[in-house]
Design a binder for these strands. Structure first.
Lengths: 219, 219
DNA sequence: TGTGGTACTGACTGGTCAGTCACTATATTG
DNA sequence: CAATATAGTGACTGACCAGTCAGTACCACA
């Protein structure tokens, strides 16, 4: 008796080809929600499967391990949006100041409540345990993002809009408040509401005040 | 025979009273190191005990659960340092600008490599799973810190050093780069070294450029 | 130099969960 | 309309670990 496995009930509803092809994405979506709610360690793959209306074993057909699935989740959300912003920065006809106050501000305001914010939070929490993932994120998002922001600042200087400041060496300062807004929302929103849109607007406005070439004062 | 417990070997080296009294602190210190290295979920209380040169059971004599121990770790590190800064802000005779460029800058530069940075990282990672701890942190550190920073900014305005700006509504902007520096160090330092001292210096310098009342230009 | 109290030990239990695998129902193909 | 292929199932295993507790050795005080 011991060691005997009961008969498996088999596939209850096999999907058509079209439906079948969307399975991995459904699992990734379900996983995103579970990870977002409970973090990496706190998420049970059984719950992911249940949320995707799938048996416990199926995720392992597409993702070898829980960590593999986590990586898939991160990659599915993180990659596309930043490319869009980068090409917008490179092709815009706006002045650098107008760009920062307009499309750039809108972009970072939009991040705070988005899935990308959740991913950032997860990466911060789990990063040290997943060096491979951290490396991926650095190479595909951060290093490129920093380079683009630096180019944007340099362009402002070249055009005579901005003073030359060490800001170009620390593009992190442009997005630091975004991180703060994300984490504040996640941790302390219930204790104290933070108007993140206005926070970021104030940030951009002050930063521009700091680096803008002063008006020559009439005469 | 099943269910029989082997005889316990008993206390191997019982400490003198004085040594005994320091046990909880030793355990907290060991726990800090384990938590810092592996996070909350990744830490085994057995390893904490081993690091403190103590048996697996002892931590439970002083701390009812793993979470209780985690709280003790956070409280042991977080509380004292911030009070010092607050009273310094309230009693300084420096101009607000000089204070920000001097003691305040030194304070935030110092945070980045300290145990307080590690605690911040742990809180960010584990916060959502420990609402009670998050509440403690908000009430004892954040809300007071924000109020103090706001008062500092307001004082600068009253003294005629600073323009009136919405910065007073978002003291988070003063410390956002600290958070960024801490997290960059923890996650990406191996990919790209960040000179956090200069980053923070640049931040304070730019912020002052933004809010300082402009010089009246000679005449 | 007992002896009483307790700080301390570490084997053990109970529960959780990632990952496996023997089996099966269905879609597809010829 | 078989025959084949494979997406899908879910009971199970093995490992891990928080928390327990019966028992012990040492300190303090007589």
């Amino acid at each position: 008796m011991a060691g005997q496995r009961s008969i498996a009930s088999g596939a209850r509803l096999r999907r058509s080809r079209k439906e079948r092809d969307s399975r991995p994405q459904e699992i990734v979506d379900a996983a995103f929600q579970e990870f977002a709610a409970k973090g990496f360690a706190g998420t049970r793959l059984e719950d992911v499967a249940a949320r995707a209306r799938v048996s416990k074993g199926l995720p392992y057909l597409y993702f070898k391990t829980k960590e593999e699935l986590f990586k898939a989740v991160v990659k599915s959300i993180v990659t596309p949006a930043f490319d869009a912003m980068r090409t917008e920065i490179e092709t815009t006809t706006l002045s650098t100041e107008a760009f920062l106050k307009g499309p750039f501000l809108a972009f970072i305001q939009n991040i705070v409540g988005s899935r990308r914010a959740t991913i950032a939070r997860l990466l911060i929490a789990e990063g040290p345990k997943h060096p491979e993932l951290t490396a991926f994120y650095y190479e595909h998002i951060l290093s490129r993002g920093m380079a683009t922001l630096r180019a944007l600042i340099d362009r402002g200087v070249e055009r005579g809009e901005f003073r030359a400041t060490p800001l170009r060496d620390f593009p992190q300062l442009l997005i630091a408040p975004v991180l703060t807004a994300i984490l504040w929302r996640a941790l302390f929103e219930r204790h104290h509401h933070l108007d993140t849109d206005r926070l970021l607007e104030t940030h951009i406005s002050l930063l521009l005040d700091a680096i803008r070439v002063p008006a020559t004062g009439g005469t």
